[in-house]
Amino acid sequence: MTCWDVVQDYGLRSLGIGERLLPRSDFTLCQQVVLIGSGMLWNIYFGAIALAAGFFLAIATAVAKAHHNPLLRKPADAFVLLFRGSPLFIQFFFAYFAFLNLKSVSPMLDDLSSAWLGALIVLFLNTSAYSAEIFYGALMSIPKGDNEAADAYGMHGFSRFRRITLPTTLRLAWPAYTNEAIFLFHSTTLVFVSGFPAQSQRGDALYYASYFADKTFNPFVPYPILAGYFILLTLTVIGLFGIVNRRLNRHLPRENTPKIRLRPNLIR
């Protein structure tokens, strides 16, 4: 069995396409690389969608947090505190069991207890809260002169937000937001170890890596493969966000462009 056959059998195994049974003995390096890579599809799916959707909720929450009206500010504060103050691991567990209870309410809610939707919702809310804090910090450090200039030009309301506030906020927040994106991708590995079932062994990269580690009792092959994939993913995220960073700062002299520096944030 050549490696190409393995790719055909297991390349999309994490989506349920291809060979039904996972390899059980005589694990080859190729099998491990292909299956763990196939699991990465889940990590990318969770991370990309949660990040894209969370961006908008994060901006809205940050604006609400900075608002003078307590009816907007207090709920935003509570939302951020709830998701930043507790471990993501426990949030997953709580959400999973809460969704299980919801199942009895209506069959429409069945999908909530499966990972593709339920875990995505938790990650979406979680990254929104973390990003909201980042954007809030940036919103607070917009130079006073920018706002005064906007006043002088008679800009108000939404046009001022769209033309002055938002671009500066994004520019200031972007390096920190890049880190948030990286660690969001890292925390997607928690999904299948925290309650959400991997239906018919369709799991993420960590799920397959720990499958191989359990079967072979040798952690020195699957985990480095997993690490390699995540380093690639991290570099891709840094590259993509770097392009956006350059665009956000294109009106500034080159040496003023803030560099994106990787800051470890570990587990939520």
Binding site: F185, L206, A209, P219, Y223, I231, L235, L262
Partner: peptide, 10 residues
């Protein structure tokens, strides 16, 4: 830095 911490734990 580049690798999920949970992978390190396991």
């Amino acid at each position: 830095r580049g690798v999920p911490d949970i992978a390190f734990f396991l």
